[in-house]
């Protein structure tokens, strides 16, 4: 029981990481009906930026927000340069473009930083604390807290601020929003920036666990897909719940299902994606999907 609970807690910690990236996917899906295949690579690049800053002697707690701000700006730049010209293109064109973007960013990271895995600092101690009889590492608790903070911040931004309101309006009703003076195209840019920053959190949180290298996010993006699909791809709340559920599921599967072990956890992610898409394509919190033709 003790070990089970520990598995659940560390599942929640990785789940928080998946949730951030899944939330980033959901933000862009809501803004333009698109799954951004480059989300993971954008996060990876932001993590490299944070790494470079820390490496130059910047304190972790300054490098972290600086990297997020840079990721935000980078997201806007990508939207302006690559996405905006093809905004109205068919969805498959957009998917292929984001896939091209993923490939490009992956190569760029390799070009600039190389492919040697690097250890990334964690601000949290690796020691464990006794929480109600369960030993939980400070690292897991820190990751859970950070993820929770980010998700809360995004929630407040979207639900409680005027910018958030106009972003939501622009995403769902671009024509009507324009008539109310909302600068829809810039709102999409902000959406990409926000998604990029939120995704970057997942990269920076996961890097101490996985070691930092250009392909670091390749498995995380699959879990984030699984989380977003499970939660319902248009639901921010669903992304969070889905992320936590996927994190706990793969952790428990890895620990207790002998045939899964460590190396087939990714296959569990794939299985979740396929099962949800076939059994309940709208996910847990999604409404009936509107097909964008």
């Amino acid at each position: 029981m003790q070990e089970f609970l520990q598995q659940v807690v560390s599942g929640l910690a990785v789940g928080g990481i998946f949730a951030s990236l899944a939330l980033a996917l959901v933000l862009i899906y809501n803004a333009m009906g698109l799954v951004n295949f480059a989300q993971g690579e954008m996060a990876m690049l932001a993590t490299f930026v944070a790494y470079a800053l820390v490496n130059r002697g910047m304190s972790y707690w300054i490098a972290f927000p600086v990297a997020l701000v840079l990721a935000f700006g980078g997201g806007i730049v990508i939207q302006r340069i690559v996405i905006r010209p093809v905004e109205r293109a068919p969805i498959l064109t957009l998917v292929i473009i984001t896939l091209g973007l993923a490939t490009l960013l992956n190569g760029l990271a390799g070009f600039v930083f190389g492919y040697v895995p690097r250890s990334f600092p964690s601000p949290f101690s690796a020691q464990s604390a006794d929480v109600l009889g369960v030993f939980v590492s400070y690292r897991d608790l820190g990751v859970i807290a950070m993820s929770g903070l980010v998700l809360l911040a995004v929630y407040l931004l979207l639900q409680r601020t005027t910018v958030g309101l106009t972003m939501r309006a622009a995403a769902h009703h671009p024509e009507a929003s324009r008539l109310l003076g909302v600068q829809v195209s810039w709102m999409l840019g902000l959406g990409w920036g926000l998604a990029s920053a939120v995704g970057a959190v997942s990269g920076i949180m996961v890097a101490p666990i996985l070691l930092l290298e250009p392909n670091m996010m390749q498995s995380i993006i699959i879990y984030a897909f699984a989380a977003a699909v499970l939660g319902g791809i248009e639901s921010p709340l669903g992304a969070v719940v889905g992320g936590l559920a996927v994190g706990v599921t793969i952790n428990l599967a890895g620990a207790y299902l002998p045939f899964v072990g460590g190396d087939l956890q990714l296959a569990v992610g794939l299985a979740i994606i396929i099962a949800v898409l076939i059994i309940r394509p709208n996910g847990l919190f999604g409404r009936a999907a509107v097909r964008r033709v």
Partner: peptide
């Protein structure tokens, strides 16, 4: 990777 990405886009 870089060239494939650029070409796709």
């Amino acid at each position: 990777a870089v060239s494939y990405g650029v070409v796709l886009i």
